[in-house]
Design a protein around this nucleic acid. Structure first.
Lengths: 401, 401
DNA sequence: TTGAAAGCGCTAACAT
DNA sequence: ATGTTAGCGCTTTCAA
């Protein structure tokens, strides 16, 4: 099997502590010693045993991501972003699929499925506001999504009301007046879910424009899958309701609705303009391409990972839970009369080089806090997080339709 | 923090060895003793420390899945299936995104990114046949996909030639004679990649039907992204080539092509029938819904995980590398004149109950091989794998257009 | 069938 | 700036 610290120490002629210091980027090592150790590491192709490190340090260098299902595009893209963000810290990601069952989500919180992880990013789909107390768990947990608010954990989410309002204003801005909605929540209670928040934003936009709120235009659909978008649109058409625009509360519903509109021979955007929510990749390639609200997924991923890691490394009294809101932007495409050229996505920069052997260390010694190596942008972000209970991400991207 | 084996042993009034035996389902424990231990475990809410277990046993209970990008639907769905398959064994999955770079894929093989995993499922997208020797790595590795054949590792893949032939026959079967292809590989060498294999199947079908092979109908496109499918289709239309059907070498290309056909006012399937390859979820919901080749992804996932786990647990002389081929089926939808009702997917059965504390153990003691607890189907499958160098999955699903 | 004890490879506390 | 040592929680001999 692989070689150990002892082997390296023997070859390099130093103690294992010195080797450990080099491996962990401890600064006070004489350059010549470091050289000797590094070449011994190279010679032996040494790799630290992460189980041993985890056993000793109490940390594994892996975080969990609990989501309903990877086959929902939104979550696949979220997972992609989160894996990239974690990778930039040298942290791995284990994905736990809850299959969108209450049972699966409870299992996440019970810690039963927590395998070798230092903390968990959790995006529930079944648990709701009533379950807020279940979030009191014995491990670092960062909540994602809009199912539960005001809980005991950090929470990274998006500006549902404002961005839904902006989406509606985007439709009003191109002259539409009878704007249908698909994806409202069936029940009137439970005012916290993203459906209700987004409908609220829709109403605000109507009110501000002096347009009436017509309940025949607001259609329920759950869950937010393509087929339900298609079914709701067929009903809307069958009912003979007059409308010239559609706001679907997520992109998947919108793609289903586009399909039903196509089947019915309704022209988009000529007869009906359509905008969705989430800005999944697929929306760029539908026929017609679909406008959407970009909720800032990459930013959400970065902040969620940063937040979780800072909790994992937190010493002393835990800071109060924070809610962090991502900024958003409206992406106009063909379905609302805009056009975006179909082209390859810009290449993603690869993460900066990092010591593949090193484990992230944030503080050193009592009192003397020392920031972990990180770039300026993330340092600024973390500082912002520390300064307020509710924080907004990178500004300047906020743009009203 | 959590309680340990010692705590449980103290409460139960037994030694830690006994507790360990219970936790690991070791059979020779007196029922009364087992009861005592179980209730102590319950009382303390004991959970084994997986780092310690990993350190001692040399296994972590986690496997790696190296894929290009989760935001490609195909890989998100593959990852979904693999996570479910691993979960049924109580094994976690860490996802390593190579970002479809050669660099990232080499890093997988170097083991540098291997974090706390017992083995790796690797689906390369950049490495090719020339890199076959790089697959000689020091850890259990199972190869997926069609980039490299005949390597030193187990390889789970699909019947590219046969299924592409069946797809083409599906088009011929509905009366089409001028069948275009999108997605061929630009270079003529390198006869191994899935593009060439699938084109070969296409040619075989033409030959068998007595149809000519017309190179003006065979279009290159790489990589297999939506935009390239759209671009290739636009070219095909601009060139004024006569064709009445299209076979795209994956679904994503097909969806792009559908978009371009829609833009050009070409009716599908009336003017041009279309079939893709991969059967991603999205193809069920395009306008029109797209026929496809289902390469048996769930089966591939199950077998890949089974194979990797059996390698991980393998004792003694390693068995020779195996190639395992999944079976396929043709799914006819609107784009070839068939219709499939849009409805929710059948619910997936949840995995059977398993001891959440137990670690998978396959053999016990030298010589005396004892099968791990598993169901009959997977036992049968594993037996089949052992019996032949090339094996076919569950039969009876094979179906020609 | 159960117990006792060694030690996996590493980090952290302490010593020098 | 570097060395020594204890022990993280578990599995695995070996013994009883």
């Amino acid at each position: 099997m692989g070689s150990t610290l002892h082997d390296v120490a023997r070859i390099a002629g130093v103690s294992i502590k010195t080797v450990s210091n080099v491996v962990n980027n401890y600064p006070h090592v004489r350059p010549s010693t470091r050289e000797k150790v590094l070449s011994a590491i190279e010679e032996l192709d040494y790799r630290p045993n992460l189980s041993a490190r985890g056993l000793r340090s109490g940390r594994t260098g892996v975080i969990g991501l609990a989501i309903p299902e990877l086959r929902q595009n939104y979550f696949a893209e979220l997972a992609d972003s989160i894996i990239r963000a974690a990778d930039a810290h040298g942290v791995g990601v284990v994905i736990d699929q809850t299959s969108a069952t209450r049972e699966g989500e409870l299992a996440v919180l019970s810690g039963e499925r927590l395998r070798l992880t230092d903390g968990v990013l959790f995006s529930p789909e079944r648990l709701g506001q009533d379950d807020v107390n279940l979030l009191n768990v014995g491990f670092p947990l960062v909540l994602l999504g809009e199912r539960i608010f005001g809980g005991p954990t950090d929470h990274v989410t998006m500006r549902n009301v404002e961005s839904a309002r902006a989406a509606t204003e985007h439709l009003i801005g191109i002259g539409r007046r009878r704007i249908a909605v698909i994806g409202a929540h069936p029940v009137n209670q439970d005012d916290i879910r993203s459906a209700n928040l987004r409908v609220r934003g829709y109403r605000e936009a109507l009110d501000a424009a002096g347009l009436p709120y017509d309940t025949t235009l607001v259609r329920t659909a759950a869950p937010w899958h393509r087929e339900n978008g298609a079914v709701a649109m067929r009903r809307l058409l069958e009912d003979g309701v007059d409308f010239d625009a559609l706001f679907t509360l997520n992109d998947t519903l919108g793609l289903g609705a586009l399909r039903a509109l196509g089947e019915a021979g309704v022209r988009v955007p000529d007869d009906v303009a359509v905008i969705g929510f989430d800005n999944i990749d697929e929306s760029r390639f539908s026929v017609p391409s679909m406008s959407s609200v970009d909720p800032g997924r990459d930013e959400i991923a970065r902040v969620a990972v940063d937040t979780l890691l800072s909790r994992i490394h937190e010493k002393g009294e835990p800071a109060p839970p924070r809610q962090i809101l991502a900024d958003y932007r409206i992406v106009g495409r063909e379905s609302t009369g805009f056009s975006e050229p179909i082209e390859a996505e810009p290449p993603r920069p690869s993460p900066p080089w990092r010591n593949p052997l090193a484990v992230e260390r944030v503080t050193r010694g009592p009192g003397a806090r020392r920031a972990a190596p990180r770039n300026r942008a993330s340092a600024r972000r973390a500082d912002a997080l520390r300064s307020a209970h509710v924080t907004t991400l990178a500004d300047g991207r906020h743009k009203r339709g």
